[in-house]
Structure formats: structure tokens, C-alpha cells
Design a protein around this nucleic acid. Sequence first.
RNA 1: GCCGACAUAGCUCAGUGGUAGAGCACUUCCUUGGUAAGGAAGAGGUCGUGGGUUCAAGUCCCAUUGUUGGCUCCA
Length: 646
Amino acid sequence: MEISITLPDGSIRQYSKGVSSMDVALSISEGLARNVLAAKINGEVVEANRPILEDANLQLLTWNDTDGKKTFWHSSAHLLAEALEALYPGTKFGIGPPIENGFYYDIDLNGVPFGADDFEKVEQKMLELTRQKNSFNRIPKSKEEALAYFQEKGDEYKLELLEDLQDGSITFYQQGNFTDLCRGPHIPDTGFIKAAKILNVAGAYWRGDEKRKQMTRVYAITFPKDKELKDYLFLLEEAKKRDHRKLGKELELFAFSERVGQGLPLWLPKGAMLRDRLEQFLKKAQVKAGYSPVVTPHIGSKQLYVTSGHYEKYGKDSFQPIRTPDEDEEFLLKPMNCPHHCEIYKTKPRSYRDLPLRLAEFGTVYRYEQSGELHGLTRVRGFTQDDAHIFCRPDQVKEEFTKVIDLVLYVFRSLGFHDYTAQISLRDPENKTKYIGSDDIWEKSESAIIESAREKDLPTVTELGEAAFYGPKLDFMVKDALGRKWQLGTIQVDYNLPERFDLEFTGADNQKHRPVMIHRAPFGSMERFIAVLIENCAGDFPLWLSPEQLVILPISEKFAAYADEVKTHLETLDIRASVDHRDEKIGRKIRDAEVGKFPYMLIVGEKESETKTVSVRKHGQGDLGSLDLQEFTNMFSSAVAESMGS
RNA sequence: GCCGACAUAGCUCAGUGGUAGAGCACUUCCUUGGUAAGGAAGAGGUCGUGGGUUCAAGUCCCAUUGUUGGCUCCA
């Protein structure tokens, strides 16, 4: 009997019933067949040798398809497990999924130490097993058989996983001497794997629960070609060069001191300059957008946080209260600005005509983050939020939300962030009791967020159950040099605090109404934003932001006076310039300026000082030739404007 | 907080039980040089901190602080 197979290009081919994807690939070309890792039949990823029993849409998956890679790495996880079992008999296995780059396997080595020194041995074993070209065999099992197998093996983790599975849906996969509980699918055989690298080991709680046993998570990556592994490792090294912790030190932007304390960054002059430019930039945009700047203290009485509810929720895990000579008095370092802003709202009666009220503050807050969570500037214990709270009527939520999105997009555009995702965090529909506020108001605000995001055409992902307990939110996520995602801009709707602080406004109906509060921070925090900015631009800041926009390099000390004259002139035009007066040759000064990432270099010698010109060199681009000062400043100011994305 | 790794000069790093090293940076001198490293000399470290083992510890052991890869957390 014949069936029709529709390929992605729309072409339809006839095959006999029971044909496998691999057969189809072979019928197209042998070269293609050699690269087929798995297949997508009617949207479901399956083994390439799975018989196709009826008309179907077929996509052959190779290394170039995300699903092909995932299958390859999933199979590689089984290969890793096989190697580990061979080298460490008795190892128990948790789960071993593919991830964005590679895969991991959670293992329990029964206390046998496993570290970087052991990696090579495991890699060698993996490669040895690949040479056996063992096929991955799918073996359906009854639940009873499956339980018996892992009881015999003594693997309590797999037994626990089995408990959650339905009889009749259980499959084992076996390759070589290794058999694993697995839904599949897998690549045809281990021979496809040509290069393997164990990347690192880490502790990971079984089933992500910190109360349960900590397993050893082995991270690894494999490739179908040795060269691809080499390329990957090279890229990884390159990415590390953009690490904000490394560049922050090299460019003298910020530092940490053991004596000051963990997670408490010190901003050095150049970093502070940069940060100040960013603050001025946003303050200006916020004034235009109708925000009112406010200033509040760094501490607040404990009662403020009892009212807000934060004391109950976070009090124990925060910096502990500050005491005064009065025994009953306690103050907390502020972990957020919202309660203070609520009190500003309450300083006078508000009318519906006053809303929205947008209170903005660059507020420094302190949170006692778990020590293991601290990470450069992206996760610190003292940081400054570019915070604002918008108090508005319920019917204004959507419009305000949309305006905030516009502001965030303006910030991102001005700073060259093009690669971001907007994560919409909604409440868990299965567990509504975790959240406060009525269904009606949640539904309204969730749909307001979803609609605003859609209208603005944001690239979104939606996460159920990720909402804050007081309201849904939208976070702008940007990746760092190593691909880790960080939340930068955030917009959150809050029904809780207006309630707790008993905020009111008088409506057109002369009745009291509850305002809605929107928390928002386009940068998120100055610290994290600058960290991600450094990594995204690799330390080559947009010209408008660069702490040192240009350096003047006199050819010899004879031209020092002219260099200073140029500097003075540029400074009157608000150009941040310095002169390299060192007794070094010009080649050396240029090299140091290039390494120091100065956007522009002005070289001045005999010729320039006589003709009142400068020889312009741009970072990374080389010599641009000579210009007179006026021409240069014209060019420079248009370059500044261009760097702002205008 | 948990599992693992790491901590030596300002920076990057070498140093596997026998009196601390390199390159760069820094200081001084020579050199006044035209688009990515000129030359010479000098100074700089109680090897994160505290214990222990040893005739002897940067090196081995324990604790502690910090950093780091993950996990958990993230108002």
C-alpha cells in the first residue's frame, strides 16, 4: 500500500506503507541520509527508523535544525551515562536532558569524588564508545517490568520518575551496555558523535528542590565534527573576553572590596561618569514622559515594611533592623522604594484628575541576597533602581503600561540592545490562592499587558505562575556574553500596596476609589544594566556614553602645548578629552589608546600644530586623515547624535 | 544557603615540601620618535586570613573570608 509523504518544500512523494524517514532520506540522496539525526513527522520528533504508517508531513532533522541538535545532545547524554557507568559502576542516574548548548546528566556517584581531573578519562571513554557505532534501540516496557529493572539496579531516582508515568507509555532506550528510562527520540547510533567535551560539574538538587538530595550535574557538549568543538571552545573564550567583570577591571569602571563587603560595588571615576550619563539620559526622558522626580531616605521605620507586608515576607532574610538609643525603635535599610512612594501619594487627597501620578527616583536599595547568588554587577546586595511608581485609575492601566513599554524601547534602542525578549509573567491558573486581588482585576490587568505587548509587537514569551503575588508583570530579558539571561527593564502591575496603604482617590462620582500602582524600571538597576551593556558592546560604549570620548596624542613633547590647546577647546564643547603626555613613541600611544577602547584618537605633531588641524583616528578603524578643528567637531557631534540611535 | 573549583606583585599568570619568579603596569635615566608595544636600570609580595602536620609549608591537612561554575532564591 502506498502512502504520501509531504516534504517541507511542499513536494509530495509516494512510498510504501511502513517506510522510515531514513529510507525517505536515502531515496533523496545518500549524502542527506548520512546527516539525518531524527525526523519530525506531523510535528512530532521521532527516530529516523520509525515506520510511517499513513500519509504524513515529514521534515528530516539534521544538525542544522534545533530539534536535530536537541536529539543529538539527548543521545549524547545517554552516551555520557554509558561512559560514566562503565568507569564508575553503581552510579545512579537522575535526568539527562539537552540544553541550549549541550546537555547535562544528574548523577549520584555514591560519594565518589568527581572533578575536572576526571573529565578527560570520561571524554576518552565516550569517544571509544562512539567508535562502536552502537544503535539506540527503543524498547517499550510495562510499568511492572520497568520498576523491576530499576529495583534490581538500585536506582531510586529512576524509580521515582517511573511513579509519575502511565503504564503503556513507558519506553527504555538501550545502546551498547547502557539502558535508560527515556521517552526518546534518539539519533540512529553513537557513531554520529565525533567530538565530546565535559564542560563542568556542579551540584544540583534532585527535582530542583533544595530540601532534597544534591546530585552531581555533569555538563558536556558534543559535536558531529571535531572542528565544531574547536570552534565552540574558541567562541567561548572570545565570549569570556567580554565578561563585564574582566572589562570592568580593565577599563577601571568598578571594583569590589572584601573590607567593604560582599556584593557592594565601588564605582570608580570612569564607571561613575558612565553611570551618571545614563542617569541624566533617563531623567531627561522621564521628565518628557510626565514623571515627577522625588527623593526619599535610604532607611525607613520597620512599621513601614510591616504595613507593606515586606517585613513579614522577607524580614528574616534581609539585612537586620538598625537600632537606635530608643529600645523600641527599629529601622530597615530600604529594600525597595515603593512604600516610601506610597507615603508620598498619601501626603494629600488625590482626585481622579490628578492621575496618573508618576513618581520617579533613582533609589538605592539593599537586599541580602544569598551569598551564592552574587555575581559581578548583575546580582549585588546594594544597587540603584531607576524606579518609578505610577498611580493611576484602573481604566488607565493599559495606556500607562503602553507608555512605559515605549520608554523601555527608547532606552534599549539608544543603547544598542536589539536582542531581547519580553517575558510576560502571569499567575498560575491552577493555583490562584497564591495571589491577592480579585479574578476580575487580574484578568483585566493580564489582558492589558498582553495587548500592550502585542500592539508594540514585542517578541514575547509567556510564563504561567511567574507573576508576583501582587500582580502580573512584563520583564525585558537580555543575554550576557555567555548567553545567560538577565532581567533588565521591568513593568509590574500591583494591587497589593494600594490596598495595604489604603490609597485612595476621589472619582468623578465623588466616591473614594482605589488607584492601581505600576512599578517600572527601564534599566532594572544601574548595576545590572551597565553589566549587560558592557558585555553587549564588549566595552566599546556608544560614543555619547563613553567615559572618555577621545584622547589626544602628541607626537612628541614639543607639541604638548598644542595638544592642551585642542583639549581645552574640545572641553568647551562638552567633549570628554584627555592628553597622553607620556614620553612614548606615537605607535605606543596609539596601541595603548586602542587597547583602552578610546573611541577617537587625535594625533597632533608639527604639521597639525602649524595648520591648526588634527589627525583623526577611530578606534578599530584606523587613520581617517586630517581635519581642521571645526570640521572635526562637526563630525564628532554628528557621530554622537548617531550613537544615540537618532 | 547547598555542591564543586579557585585565591602568589597593581594586572595576567608560573612555581608538586628545602630561603619567592616572569611578562605587562609603575619609578628614574637615555631617547623627541608620524598611525598597534624604542632601550637601560630600579622599586614592588610576611604567597587571602587563622590554626595544624613537618627539621622545613606558597606547596600537605582543618577552619575561615572572598571570588567563581552551577543548583535553590530574586520584593
